[in-house]
Amino acid sequence: MSLYLPELIHPIHHFAHRTIDFSREVAVMAIINRTPDSFYDGGTTFALDAAVRAALQAVEDGAQWLDIGGVPFAPGPELPWQEEADRVVPVIRAIRDQTDAVISADTFQPRVAAAAIEAGADVVNDTTGISHPDLARVVAESGVHLVITHSLARPRTAYPRPTYADVTTEVARFLQDKVELARNLGVEGAKIVIDPGHDLNKNTLHTLEITRRLDEVAALGYPVLAAVSNKDFIGETLDAPKSERLPGSLAAATICLVNGARILRMHNVAESVAAARLFEAAAGWREPAYLKHNMGDANEPAQVVGR
């Protein structure tokens, strides 16, 4: 498998407190869920102080990006926007002055997005593919970034038995159309990120195919976000419960990087940062932390076992 280096329309992205060159860098996005029923952690960061601690620990572990969410993607009753904002905004406000990391609000609600931006968010991460056009207008007026994700269902509704004639082609076409919509609503091209939506309205076979052919999505020319962490396609492929999906998550993330992804949305930050930094070194973008092995006149004792 060769390394795919997409030709990015805007490789360098300027956020309020940080600049990332996606032609030479991988950003690890830490997931901070302020929900009592989150898919992975079951509400362990629902309390405000727990969410703030988790965010700052993620930065300590190497995350360059913090994604703060107040509502799960999974089907369920609609949460009033004020209640969602009450979950997300205090976290953003509490951490904004303590880190230069990129901060995104995971929301599809325009009024939540506006409140999060006012509190200091750099990005709106919309997992519904601009289901509310006013959200793109809020982003455009504020001059922040927008993540556009492929998903077919109305927000928080079920989409049973999704079918595609060619899932990757259809996902890429959807994202291109939504990018054009966002641009027409005033969002700058240099502030757009795309996400193929692993597992979102897709079965495991669909998601595996998107992972294998992610280069076709990256070829659109916008930085690709891969949200693969601990998802059901990993569990079903490996017959692994959520607590045992880290190795599969890192493998999926690495495949996505090789195929052009430049942002990884992950739960296990330290391990994901290590994988991203090794990828950057193998790509020739980063020097190793040190060089010692076979670098002197006499070899150092072997540090590996079993050879």
Score class of each variant (00 low, 15 high):
G42R: 10
P110A: 00
T254D: 13
L214R: 01
V258E: 13
A172S: 06
I234V: 04
P162E: 03
F108E: 08
T204M: 14
A16N: 10
V167Y: 12
N33E: 01
S23F: 05
V269W: 00
P223T: 12
R111G: 00
L181K: 13
A51T: 01
V273L: 07
A16E: 14
N184Y: 12
G296V: 01
E271I: 01
R277E: 07
D239I: 15
A153G: 14
W81S: 15
L8A: 04
H206W: 06
E180K: 09
P301V: 04
K231Q: 00
G221L: 02
A94T: 01
V71W: 02
H13Y: 04
D215Y: 13
D122C: 11
L250Q: 09
G235T: 02
L250E: 13
D61V: 02
V305I: 11
G76F: 11
D86Y: 09
D67P: 05
V123F: 14
R277H: 08
V52R: 11
G186M: 02
V59A: 06
R262E: 11
F39D: 06
E209M: 07
Q64N: 09
L8Q: 05
T45Q: 14
T127K: 06
A252T: 09
Y222K: 04
F39H: 10
E7L: 10
E170I: 01
L8W: 00
H10P: 04
H10D: 07
A190C: 12
H267V: 11
V224E: 07
A302Q: 14
I255N: 10
I12F: 06
V224K: 11
I31Y: 00
A54D: 12
S142Y: 01
D134Y: 06
T19S: 06
Q57T: 12
T107P: 02
D199T: 12
T128A: 07
L48I: 13
V304Y: 09
R183Q: 14
E300C: 09
A114P: 01
E141M: 03
Q64P: 05
K178P: 11
V224P: 10
R212V: 07
A240M: 14
G186C: 00
A252N: 03
R137M: 01
P241M: 00
V26N: 04
A227P: 03
D86A: 11
I194F: 09
A74M: 08
A182R: 04
R87A: 15
A30G: 05
R154A: 02
A113G: 08
G197N: 06
P247C: 09
T157V: 03
S243G: 15
R245L: 10
E7T: 14
D215C: 10
L214W: 00
I103R: 13
D166Y: 08
A94Q: 02
A140S: 08
